[in-house]
Design a protein around this nucleic acid. Structure first.
Lengths: 303, 303
DNA sequence: CAATTCCATAGGTTTTTCCTATGGCAGGTA
DNA sequence: TACCTGCCATAGGAAAAACCTATGGAATTG
């Protein structure tokens, strides 16, 4: 058994066929047939059911598939770990963040990080929490920033504190000059909300339900950017994280904090427990923690 | 990176040199040099320090070594797991046991198991507890029987109950006709004990210390078999597990139980938590549990 | 100082992997 | 029915990888 055979096998299962897998792997289809056949011969039984339309793993294939993925992930981890013991901080760092955190927080963090560690090639993956967890688990990202998370055993979830939410208004709105607004001010406003795919949407819904605020939902947007533009054009208002205050100002909106009970969302730093943490990963995590303190997210309880 | 390169690398580290590793791997030494060089090139740094006498892993090499071993163990595990899903119960089963359990218990168990599952190739590894744990961890044995164990996180340690120890006497000894002996009977007897490598020796010492029994230690043997022969020839007496009673009888000795507080040792079944348990492994484990009940090891507390 | 041990390199051989071309099989379509 | 179409297996030759023997240099040992 060799690693390239496991790679081939995993890809064939995921692609659902030899031909499609061959395209993804940049090899000819017969090479896959050969290598899989060899693997099956070595293991003494078929791993794939050849159907007219493609292939499906057998019982043995399913067993191998799970383990092969873990093995390949560990090989990748070993590579990272070994590469990390060179003296200078270099290599690739993949940071994940949910879309309601990324645009407000990452630009500053990335700029600061790249200044300190110019040789590190930083990449950003912006996805919803569930997908971040999945990719973290697969070793595709080194660390992630998210809000509320269903903790999995293999994931280390570190609270960074609580970030306040506030009212997003057009600059000309009647409430836009206030230093603060109350929950009753929201009553009856035309609201723009996010798609329920985003955890922020679910959190906002929850807040409104418990505060018995009823507002007219006009529009369900896929991105906060869309909402920002809509609000700037006077279509309605929204409840968004403080991180978006500077962006809001720049686009002709205002962000006003809400009176007690102040709505907040958790911010968590996610790391994988079983994977090697490169020095770049640790450095970025430290940077994130400092930023969390600077932004006043750390409450007494979480400090 | 390929698995055979990892296998080569691990062997070179463990052998402490290319030449020695080449012998173990049945390949020519230059092949190793080539493959390791390739690995080093791919990882971008040296993995081994070439010293005049042999080689020693660098920092990067040490990091890779640990992970490579885990990866290879998982590959072996995957092979076992896949092989286990064929219909009939076959394959290899490696059973570990400490030397003070193996000869007394395994013959009967193995006979019974082989009768039920003739296609399974059963092997026995007889070693002291520490080595058993090590080999269990490395995936070289499927399950093990031992006494007191320093529980490691990855090892599942299942109590099978407590086995009584008793006095081993020559058949002509004055006490040999008794149905039971007391601790005071032991006082002043010439004792034959095991090497401290065996946990039984430590346990016996402990018992004697707490019961304030002082006996003359004449001989420290490496195997219970030696002690049995010495006792049979009237050199002294010993404190041995009940499992050895039938063997003792056959060799002209007698095994007499001790009065309360009856000395006992724990018997534990060890399995690896993270490894796949073949159906043969589970079948053998079930057989062991039944044997433990039949032998009356299971007390009320452990049932 | 010679003999030994150990690893690296060179050059050629064997083995493995990969590619192109082709064939068979099943499903869908005219 | 006949005819595509998509998919995988097989065959045979080309490319690549792994391996072996022979040899050389460096440090150690007797």
């Amino acid at each position: 058994m060799e690693l390239h055979q496991l790679r081939y096998f995993v890809t064939v299962v995921e692609a659902g066929g030899f031909s499609r897998a061959a395209v993804r792997l940049h090899v000819a289809q017969p090479s896959l047939s050969q290598q899989i056949a060899k693997l099956e011969q070595e293991l003494g039984q078929p791993l794939l059911d050849r159907l007219p339309r493609g292939v499906v793993p057998t019982e043995a294939g399913r067993r191998l598939y799970d383990r092969a993925r873990r093995i390949l992930a560990e090989v990748a981890d070993a590579t990272r770990c070994v590469a990390d013991c060179r003296e200078s901080l270099e290599g690739r760092l993949v940071v994940g963040a949910i879309p309601t955190i990324a645009p407000g927080l990452l630009p500053r963090l990335l700029a600061e990080f790249s200044e300190q560690h110019p040789k590190v090639d930083v990449q950003v993956v912006e996805e919803v929490t569930e997908r971040l967890l999945q990719r973290l688990d697969e070793g595709q990202i080194d660390l992630a920033l998210a809000s509320t998370v269903d903790v999995q055993t293999a994931i280390h979830c570190e609270p960074l504190g609580k970030e306040p939410l506030g009212l997003l208004l057009p600059a000309r709105h009647a409430l836009a000059r206030r230093r603060q607004v109350t929950w009753t001010d929201l009553q009856g406003e035309k609201a723009l909300v996010l798609s329920e795919l985003h955890c922020l949407a679910r959190q906002v819904n929850e807040f409104c339900k418990t505060r018995s605020v009823r507002w007219h939902v006009w529009f369900q947007a896929a991105h906060l950017g869309t909402i920002l533009e809509m609000v700037a054009n006077g279509v309605g208002v929204s409840l968004v994280p403080q991180l978006f205050a500077p962006i809001a100002n720049a686009r002709g909106c205002r962000w006003i904090p809400l009176d007690a009970p102040r709505p907040e969302r958790d911010i968590n730093l996610l790391l994988h427990n079983l994977r090697y943490r490169t020095r770049a990963t640790l450095a970025f995590a430290a940077l994130v923690r400092r930023a969390a303190q600077r932004l006043g997210w750390m409450t007494e309880a979480t400090k």
